[in-house]
Design a protein around this nucleic acid. Structure first.
Length: 288
DNA sequence: GAGGCGTGGAC
DNA sequence: TGTCCAAGCCT
């Protein structure tokens, strides 16, 4: 069923899409899966160099599965949310051991892999295997909230109506291209702050624009503080382990965070998450 | 389902 | 040295 948004957005995408390596025809399902995990909550420009390094070093799931998980964490660099590196390593092992080294091709099978939730399973099934799914990421949710619902931002958590709306918009042919086109529009034009409505292919049909761009109405959108948090402390500690060639004395960890109580709590968290290991008395390392 | 989980660029 | 936020997932 053709929808009035289809042609303008698909035509816009044909003209304005970015040439990203994981979108090229030669990209493998593994490369696409790696890109999707790396792109979670992370800007494209920061992912690009790390993705290239990973693909050169670990072009297949088997190649990564042979490495200790700490190597995945080390080569994650400063992408953020390093548990993703651990989960990607676990994905590589599961794919190697349970899927004969082939990235599974269905949504349900992808969902069984660690770190792959609703969005990523739909994205990999669509972009790597051409399947038809509602690919509902933050960009798509924002575009639909504005164009269809006439609101500045979508709800905090994905709702059933949003899911049904996205499903109703899937074209019978070319679902993956439609998905990536809407995402790209959200990423480049219909951005969270300062949307470029003058450059938007559906500005004449956008319910939010037509309503005069009313400001977000509802509960405050949580702004996360970072300085002084356990998250920052974990990041400092892990950076020490990542940047050292081998195990490090605890004194080196103690040196990067003054508050001992918080520091111990953060270190315990890293150990519990499997991002760090105690290899000897007062000697810590990335997981081997 | 609310909260935890990194990092750095743009304002 | 503040706020927002960038292709989410897990508990």
């Amino acid at each position: 069923m053709a929808h009035p948004l289809h042609s303008p957005i698909l035509d816009w995408y044909a003209e304005h899409n970015r040439d990203l390596p994981w979108r090229r025809p030669e990209a493998t399902p593994w490369g696409i899966l790696v890109s999707e995990i790396m792109l979670q909550q992370t800007p494209v420009v920061r992912v690009l160099p790390i993705w290239e390094e990973w693909m050169t070093r670990w072009p297949t799931p088997e190649a990564l599965a042979k490495e200790p998980p700490g190597e995945a964490v080390r080569n994650w660099g400063r992408l953020g949310y390093p548990r993703r590196a651990l989960r990607l390593h676990a994905c590589a092992k599961a794919i190697t051991e349970s899927w004969h080294g082939e990235v599974p091709s269905t949504y349900d099978d992808l969902r069984t892999l660690p770190g792959i939730g609703d969005y990523t399973a739909a994205a990999v099934a669509s972009f790597a295997y051409g399947k038809s799914h509602a690919v509902l990421d933050t960009n798509v949710r924002r575009v639909l909230a504005r164009t269809i619902r006439g609101e500045e931002y979508p709800p905090k958590a994905t709702t059933t109506p949003e899911k049904r709306l996205a499903e109703s918009l899937i074209p019978p042919i070319g679902a993956p291209r439609w998905a990536v086109a809407v995402m790209e529009l959200g990423a480049l034009v219909c951005t969270a702050r300062s949307p470029r409505c003058a450059d938007c292919p559906v500005s004449s049909r956008c319910a939010w624009l037509l309503a005069g761009k009313p400001a977000h109405d509802g509960p405050e959108r949580k702004g996360q503080t970072y300085a002084g948090t356990d998250r920052q402390c974990r990041g400092r500690l892990l950076a020490v382990l990542r940047d050292a060639p081998g195990p490090v004395e605890k004194a080196l960890l103690d040196a990067v965070w003054a508050d001992a109580v918080q520091r111990e709590r953060a270190l315990d968290g890293l150990l519990a998450d499997g991002l760090a290991e105690l290899v000897d008395d007062d000697l810590y390392a990335l997981p081997g």
